[in-house]
């Protein structure tokens, strides 16, 4: 029997008169890559923020690794990537990741450097993050998400800012992580990413989530 990594029941979020999420029922099994598509403002990012514990749902429940997620209590064993600058600008990429990793103290410097190389950056690069290009920042953000080898990854538009080569690298990386047993939830505007990578696809429209048939390529 497949292990359930993430589950939601009747998850809804209302803000003023808007239904941002409407009765979301989701069950994600271990080792899957699950894609979320939908227009801007359809509720994909809102759902991801609820799953991370950043936003309290109006009603419904979320379980991550069988532990109920409540507001202000963040899931363990989770790597995330959102489109927000979260690094200390005057420090190098390696130094930023080292500081973040030191909070949990789970991995060594060598492991951090390996992860930075894995996303196609030079771990010895002394350049401060404020001088990084958008694509480099995105790669670094991805490195921070995966460096502690979390069992679940929530990636909101991970291909943003990447060139064609970068997108191909990331696709290979996600497939490699999947083979290692990592479960990945990702949203993307590029339907090609979703179709190539994902085992399951969900479409979000005005806060309503529906499962899509995966087209045969």
């Amino acid at each position: 029997m497949e292990k359930i990594v993430l589950q939601t029941k009747q998850l809804s979020k209302k803000f003023k008169k808007n239904d941002l999420l409407n009765d979301i029922q989701l069950t994600i099994n271990e080792g899957q890559i699950v894609g979320f598509i939908g227009r801007n403002g359809s509720g994909k990012s809102m759902l991801f923020k609820c799953l991370c514990g950043f936003i309290q749902p109006t009603s419904g429940k979320i379980w991550v690794f069988e532990e109920e997620i409540k507001y202000g209590k963040f899931p363990k064993n989770l790597g995330i990537l959102f489109d927000k600058p979260g690094f200390i600008p005057h420090l190098s990429g390696f130094k930023n990741l080292k500081l973040l990793a030191s909070i949990q103290n789970k991995i060594s410097d060598i492991s951090i450097k390996q992860t930075i190389s894995q996303v196609g950056l030079n771990p010895e690069d002394p350049k401060p993050v404020k001088k990084y290009s958008l694509g480099m920042k995105q790669r670094l953000a991805l490195a921070q998400a995966i460096m502690e080898k979390p069992k679940l990854l929530i990636l909101d538009e991970p291909m943003n800012g990447l060139d064609e080569e970068g997108v191909n690298d990331m696709r290979q990386l996600f497939l490699h992580l999947q083979q290692e047993g990592t479960t990945i939830l990702l949203s993307s505007h590029h339907s090609e990413d979703i179709q190539i990578l994902c085992n399951e696809i969900y479409k979000m429209d005005k806060g309503i989530l529906t499962k899509q048939e995966k087209p045969v390529i």
Binding site: C52, G53, F74, P75, F87, I88, L100
Partner: peptide
């Protein structure tokens, strides 16, 4: 509160 929390919160487990 606007930027850095995003990579820090999942590593600290509780907001307190």
């Amino acid at each position: 509160w606007n930027h850095h929390f995003i990579y820090v919160f999942p590593r600290v487990e509780t907001i307190y």
